[in-house]
Amino acid sequence: MAETVIRTEKLTKRFGDFVAAHELTFEVDKGEIFGFLGANGAGKTTAMRMLCGLSIPTSGKAMVAGFDVFTQPDEIKKNIGYMSQKFSLYEDLTVSENIKFYAGIYGLSIKQIKLKTEELLTELSLKNEAKVLVSELPLGWKQKLSFSVALVHQPKVVFLDEPTGGVDPVSRRNFWDLIYYAADKGVTVFVTTHYMDEAEYCNRVSIMVDGVIAALDSPTNLKKQFSSDSMDDVFYKIARGAKRSE
């Protein structure tokens, strides 16, 4: 049986009277690409923050990378990777400085940092750009770099929050090649996106509506279940009834 990397049971977060996330129960396996979809305001960010150890749940249970979100949030932070489109790299540091910085933050030794920097620069074909400021890189390259930086400490699971916004269709697909490659090596990928074609690239997809998980299955099964020919249509059928918007 596959190893479970994320396991939640009735995970709930309330802000006063408002139930942002209500009794979320799901499991994600090692090496799985798990799509986490939902309308704006459905509770995705709240759920992700709990799983990343940044927000203590109100009730329920959750284990991430072998640690408890209630009692071991700091251990979780050390054992996961995180990348969001909004914040990831320091624009006023060079490519290699960014890699060194993140590797240092995650406690790699000086020797490891040196090795890792070399390795990443080669893997991403960024050797010639090592001393270039990140602000001068094209967006597609920045996204690839910040994904690699999120994996610098070899976490079991990586959280990607709308990683591909704004890039051209070819860069977007190149980015997904990296995701597939990482998953193939056993990294669990937990990803949110507004591109419904990207939902099709996931092994399984969950769709949140008004704080609850309204559907969770493989894209193929979801399409069967909702008699749809695309995930776009599935999403529309599930989410159009949503009552709240953030």
Binding site: A39, N40, E162, G166, H194, M196, Y236, A239, A242
Partner: peptide
């Protein structure tokens, strides 16, 4: 519509 979910975009 950047960053807006698929339903709101429609």
């Amino acid at each position: 519509t950047t960053g807006v979910d698929a339903v709101s975009r429609k």
